[in-house]
């Protein structure tokens, strides 16, 4: 996207292109920005969900034991493995 923007710099060229295209180029550039951001947000979910699944998977069993010492040890061990 940065390269596209560099090629269509704001200024005379961009204004000419926009005038000919009825503002279409500017609109398309903004829509590419929006789409890239949306794709990025979706991709970011992989790591976020994996972190949550890992945490739950590793700590749910010790937490269910309701044994304070076991839970503390499990959390400390979990932290050391990150």
């Amino acid at each position: 996207m940065a390269e596209v923007k560099k090629r269509v710099r704001p200024g005379l060229r961009r204004r000419v292109v926009d005038a000919v295209g009825g503002g279409l180029v500017s609109e398309l550039l903004s829509r590419i920005d929006e789409l890239e951001a949306a794709v990025e947000e979706n991709r970011n979910l992989n790591l976020r969900v994996a972190e949550l699944v890992d945490l739950v998977q590793e700590l749910l069993v010790p937490v269910a034991s309701q044994d304070r010492d076991k839970i503390d040890a499990a959390v400390a061990k979990f932290q050391r493995s990150l």
Partner: peptide, 17 residues
């Protein structure tokens, strides 16, 4: 202790502790 605020696992585990 080490905590990585950019990692959800690290933040949640330390927060719980």
């Amino acid at each position: 202790r080490e905590v990585n605020l950019l990692s959800l696992r690290s933040t949640l585990a330390e927060g719980a502790r």
